[in-house]
Structure formats: structure tokens, C-alpha cells
């Protein structure tokens, strides 16, 4: 703070701090607090309530008719009493209907249906698979760019990786759709080779496999894995690789003992980013599966909010996902033995 004041003066420091505070408060703290708060209560809306009110009104109509027909004062008084009771009931029920009772508790989390829970677990599993696959694909690429190419070639490779990102993510996903569709690029190629035929619909239904979502997700988030790994591998002294080779270590041992330990923070960051983006991705599974290979949890959350209008359970679902991501971060930090500071680098 003191440092800031000294380097930038009062006005600029004020701007920095205000902007940071605004960002923290409005973009992070408030929405999260809102979500958490919403996830912790639910409205106990009685499904039968409307019907019970209707029935009470019709009962009251009958009673009022009875009241007109009654011939003894005692009978009148008796019926009047029942009508009054019923009126009070109706008033209470109508009050409950307009302002249903709000309960606090963890029910939103615990009442997840078995099917939803299965989807929840499946999405985590799939995202883990995507993360591991992305790591397997990206590590060699990052290493090649960082250590094996000349600076010019590295710049060109980097550019080649970034160029597709100039296009909107949706379009990139649709590109994969076109490639993998029933009558898409690959199937057309197979048809041309005579391996499948469009007439009898013997095409390979790529889009019905979860693999198609994997492919599109890996492609969508490849840079988030490559960049952190590239950044850490880049800082590795080339002499270390040569020393390892000179001492007789093969390629695999050099990577296991020298490169990967050095690149750990980058790998951890890449995995965390890829996992979080995959598990929360909505558009990719939505577009790629078109409902043909089951929902992802992100799609369930979407439905809770925008189709069931149940913000409370939607909030609980999405907060569960946040917790999973936090857990994943902690596990990665533990597994790779890296601290927050390594990751922040």
C-alpha cells in the first residue's frame, strides 16, 4: 500500500484500489454470497394447497346454501360457526399461497435425486478424463515449443496454436460437430472409402459417444493447458537436459526426473484450469451431444435456473460444483506439492 502510494501517487493508487475493490465485491463476493444464500433455503410450497383452497370455497358454498335452508336458530348458529372456521382456514391457506413459508437448511444439497447425483459424478469423472487427455496431448507440444524448436519456429508454432482462438468458441465447437456428424467430414470420408453407407445409415455415430465431447473440450481448452506448462518448461535451463543426457539418462527418465518436477506448477495450473472449464462447460456438451449421450451437470444447472425456475436448488447445484473445483485445486496442490505462490507464478 505504502509502496503503491510512493510509486503511483494518490490519484492512481486510489483508482487501482477502487477498481480492485469493485471487482472483488461486485464480480466475486456478491454473486457468490447470493448463490450461497439462495442455496441454503427453500420454499415449502404445498402442491395440494390450491386444490384445498378450491375445495374449501366449494365447501363454503354448500354451507352457505345450508345456512339458507336451515330452519332452527341452533342449526343456523352451528352452520355459521363452521363457515367462520372455514373462512379462517381459507384466509390462512391464501396467506400461505401468496407468501409460502421459507425454510433454512441443507435440504437443497441433500435432496438431489439419484439420477442427478449420478450425472454429477459422471461429469466429474468425464472432466477428469478430459484433463488427463489434455495433459497427455499438451505436455509434448508445450515441451517441443519450449525446448526443441528455434525461437522462430517456436513463435510460428505458438501462432498456429493461437490462431484458431480468434474464432468464437461456439464456432470452433460447431466445426467439430461438422467433422463428427452422421454425414460429417469423417463419415463422408469413410463413405467415400466404401466403409459406411449413408443410405442404410451405417455411419459411425461419433456424436453419440462421450468421446466427441472429450475431443471438443480438449480442443476448446488446449491453450489453457499448454501455456502454463510452456511457461514453466521454458524456464528450465537447457544445460539440465544436456546434463541428464550426458549422464546416460534416456528421454523418459529425463522427463520424469528433470523436466516434469520442474514443470509441476505449470502442470498443476493447466490441470486446474482445464478441469474447471470442462466441468463447468455448458455449450460444448449441449452442442456436441444434442441430447444424444446424456446430460452434463452444467446442463442440469442451466435447467434448474431457466426451466424449473428453481433458483434455490440451482444455486445449490452450482455451489456443489464450486466445492468440487476447490477440492480439485487442493488435491492438485497436495499431489504436486506446490503452494499457492508457485501456482500464482
Amino acid at each position: 500500500m505504502h509502496e503503491l502510494l510512493r510509486s503511483y501517487g494518490r490519484t492512481l493508487t486510489g483508482v487501482f484500489i477502487t477498481l480492485t475493490a469493485f471487482w472483488m465485491l461486485i464480480m466475486i463476493l456478491l454473486p457468490q454470497a447470493f448463490m450461497i444464500e439462495h442455496s441454503l433455503w427453500w420454499i415449502d410450497r404445498d402442491d395440494q394447497l390450491g386444490m384445498r383452497i378450491d375445495r374449501a370455497y366449494s365447501d363454503m358454498g354448500l354451507l352457505e346454501f345450508d345456512l339458507g335452508q336451515a330452519d332452527t336458530p341452533e342449526g343456523k348458529a352451528d352452520i355459521q360457526e363452521r363457515i367462520d372456521g372455514l373462512k379462517a382456514d381459507i384466509a390462512a391457506m391464501e396467506a400461505e399461497e401468496t407468501a409460502p413459508p421459507k425454510h433454512y437448511g441443507f435440504d437443497n444439497y441433500t435432496k438431489m435425486s439419484a439420477l442427478h447425483f449420478e450425472i454429477f459424478l459422471k461429469s466429474i469423472g468425464y472432466s477428469l478424463a478430459v484433463t488427463i487427455l489434455a495433459l497427455i496431448v499438451c505436455y509434448p507440444i508445450a515441451f517441443t515449443i519450449a525446448k526443441l524448436s528455434t525461437p522462430n519456429k517456436a513463435a510460428l508454432l505458438m501462432l498456429g496454436l493461437i490462431v484458431p482462438y480468434a474464432i468464437n468458441e461456439l464456432l470452433r465447437v460447431y466445426a467439430w460437430l461438422m467433422i463428427l456428424d452422421y454425414q460429417g467430414v469423417i463419415n463422408s470420408l469413410l463413405a467415400w472409402l466404401g466403409l459406411v453407407s449413408f443410405e442404410d445409415k451405417s455411419w459411425v455415430p461419433f456424436l453419440e459417444y462421450s468421446g466427441s465431447v472429450f475431443v471438443a473440450l480438449i480442443y476448446a481448452y488446449v491453450l489453457f493447458m499448454i501455456f502454463p506448462i510452456y511457461n514453466t518448461v521454458e524456464t528450465l535451463d537447457r544445460n539440465q537436459l544436456e546434463a541428464s543426457e550426458d549422464l546416460g539418462a534416456g528421454v523418459i527418465r529425463t522427463h520424469l526426473r528433470v523436466v516434469i518436477p520442474h514443470a509441476k506448477p505449470g502442470i498443476a495450473v493447466g490441470c486446474i484450469m482445464t478441469f474447471m472449464l470442462s466441468v463447468g462447460s455448458y455449450s460444448v456438451p449441449q452442442i456436441m451431444t444434442r441430447g444424444k449421450s446424456g446430460d452434463w451437470f452444467s446442463q442440469l444447472i442451466y435447467r434448474q435456473f431457466f426451466e424449473s425456475q428453481n433458483w434455490n436448488s440451482g444455486a445449490a447445484y452450482s455451489f456443489s460444483l464450486v466445492l468440487v473445483c476447490l477440492g480439485f485445486i487442493l488435491i492438485m496442490m497436495k499431489v504436486f506439492k506446490v503452494g499457492i505462490r508457485d501456482i500464482a507464478k
Partner: peptide
């Protein structure tokens, strides 16, 4: 065996 200028210890 080579001893590097910057030693290149791991």
C-alpha cells in the same frame, strides 16, 4: 562426462 559452465545441477 561433462561439467557444465553453470554446473547444471538438478
Amino acid at each position: 562426462a561433462l561439467i557444465f559452465q553453470n554446473l547444471a545441477l538438478f
